[in-house]
Design a protein around this nucleic acid. Structure first.
Length: 483
RNA sequence: GGCGGCAUAGCCAAGCGGUAAGGCAAUGGUUUGCAAAACCAUCACCCCCGGUUCAAAUCCGGGUGCCGCCUCCA
């Protein structure tokens, strides 16, 4: 297989992928803050890294995939005041903050499962790693690059020469553009809190050497990433909006404490837009995954995501989802037809070579910075070849049939599509038809058998009026819900 | 104001120095009782200006436009 390349945000270039320890990959991806339902953005990000991890595993790497659950709400307003989001939501609903976080965490996992996204190997919760965070803060204090003021501990940005390297920001310019009020306790306006002193009314708080408090937003990822993946991790992912300040601060804290490079490859995924507009909780225009799944097939949504490079913004529109649904139907139909094929002793052996070259193209596409759009094109091209074979009507050997299905399964294993078409029993997967529709369909079959085209067309119109579409295939008529 | 990214056919979109993947839509055809599905064919010189190069959508500089970040957010 070709070498894998990846766009590293640190260099903004395509780089050859070589993990720190040959054959092994540690990847950490920033997960959700669980104070509300999961939305399209969470899905896009999770899917992007799901596919990346799938492919790295296919390529033979032993991958440890860690993605956190943030159950400390941090702050809602500016850098140093405001209210914990989890606590705020919990108070509104009159429930315990951690219970609320647990509920949304489980819901998040359910939604991801529905989308076919595998659970990370480790999904650590911030509140279960407070001791690790405290150790990291203490280390930074010892090294003199953090300071404590009245129970709050700040990272001293000027003591970290590389600060701003990831997001290419200059310290001098950060201050000028700042839109938040500067906390007078800070030595430099760009300093950020590692640990907050807790006000009395704060529910989520822990004992620390500096009194009761709670962690700053960024420290959890540093602590948990290093706990599970070591001081230098291969890939750190997350949505691009997190590059500053979150990831910048993660680098500062981690490298400040260890003196070693924190991350080899920074990988950022693009944001989801709705009809060309930014989707954000603060704008209230976000679509939850429950909303999405009520209207669209999860595999269709996956195909929609695969059509755009993971690092580009993706625009969620009706048209795009409809097109993806069409792709899914085309692929599913081909898979079902192959599965229904009566295997002959021999035939169609030319497909074996076609499958080999298709696999090579799939691998090549994924090696190019996980180019799923190219991989998707290959999935569709392969489906075209399969359809051509099917349309020819020639005999297909059992070995060829199995090889085709195995190749589809490979796409499923890496891209996540197709999966359901391969797993489900084709006959059982059809939705049950209302008796009236079924009766008319049978009546129509009879009419067609005696070449009574007038009756046949009349019955088709009646079936259409009931909301179902009927089409005739060599194997008989097929009825299904109209779009 | 600062930083970063993007600008490819009617629409979505790949492309990472050698003369434009794929999909949707459209048009013509094969097949079909008709329709659907499927298959075949047709359909772009890449925002503008300048530069580097034998060669640029791809690199550099300058414009214009859009998006994101600089504040919690995947």
């Amino acid at each position: 297989m070709l070498p894998i390349t990846v766009t590293n945000t640190l260099s903004r270039r395509l780089e050859a992928f070589e993990p720190v320890v040959p054959g092994r990959v540690g990847i950490y991806v920033c997960g959700p803050t669980v104070y509300g339902p999961a939305h399209l953005g969470h899905a896009r990000t999770a899917m992007a890294y799901d596919v990346i991890v799938n492919f790295l595993r296919y390529a033979g790497y032993r991958v440890t995939y860690v993605s956190n659950i943030t159950d400390v709400g941090h702050l809602t307003d500016d850098a140093d005041s405001g209210e914990d989001k989890v606590q705020k939501e919990a108070r509104k609903r009159k429930v315990d903050p951690l219970a609320l976080a647990t509920r949304y965490m489980l819901e998040y996992f359910e939604d991801m499962a529905a989308l076919g996204v595998a659970r990370p190997d480790v999904a650590p919760r911030a509140t279960e790693h407070i001791p690790q965070m405290l150790r990291l803060v203490a280390e930074l204090l010892e090294r003199g690059i953090a300071y404590e003021v009245d129970g709050t501990v700040y990272f001293e940005v000027r003591k970290f020469p590389n600060y701003g390297r990831l997001s290419r920001k200059l310290l001098s310019e950060l201050v000028a553009g700042a839109r938040v009020e500067v906390d007078q306790a800070k030595r430099d306006p760009a300093d950020f809190a590692l640990w907050f002193r807790s006000p009395p009314e704060h529910i989520l708080k822990w004992e620390s050497p500096w009194g009761f408090g709670y962690p700053g937003w960024h420290i959890e990822c540093s602590a948990m990433a290093m706990q599970y993946l070591g001081e230098t991790i291969d890939i750190h992912g997350g949505a691009i909006e997190l590059s500053f300040p979150h990831h910048e601060n993660e680098i500062a804290q981690s490298e400040g404490a260890t003196g070693k490079p924190f991350v080899k490859y920074w990988v950022h995924s693009g944001l989801v837009q709705i009809d060309g507009q930014k989707m954000a909780k603060s704008l209230g225009n976000f679509i939850t995954l429950r909303d999405l799944l009520a209207r669209w097939d999860p595999e269709a949504f996956r195909l929609f995501c695969l059509g755009t490079a993971y690092r580009s913004p993706i625009d969620f529109t009706e048209d795009a989802l409809a097109a993806a649904t069409g792709h899914l139907e085309r692929i599913t139909a081909a898979v079902f037809q192959v599965r229904a094929l009566a295997a002959a002793p021999a035939g169609g052996e030319a497909m074996l070579a076609a499958i080999e070259s298709s696999r090579a193209r799939l691998e090549a596409a994924m090696c190019e910075d996980f180019n799923t759009a190219k991989a998707l094109a290959e999935l569709l091209a392969f489906t075209r070849e399969v359809n051509t074979l099917l349309a020819g009507g020639a005999a297909v050997g059992g070995g060829v049939k199995d090889a085709i299905l195995a190749h589809y399964a490979l796409f499923g294993r890496i891209l996540g599509v197709p999966r359901r078409a391969l797993a489900a029993d084709p006959s059982a997967s059809a939705e049950p038809l209302p008796p009236g529709v079924l009766a008319k369909a049978k009546e129509r079959d009879a009419a067609r058998a005696r070449k009574d085209w007038a009756a046949s067309d009349r019955l088709r119109a009646e079936i259409a009026a009931l909301g179902y579409a009927i089409k005739d295939t060599p194997g008989g008529s097929v009825v299904r819900k109209a779009k």
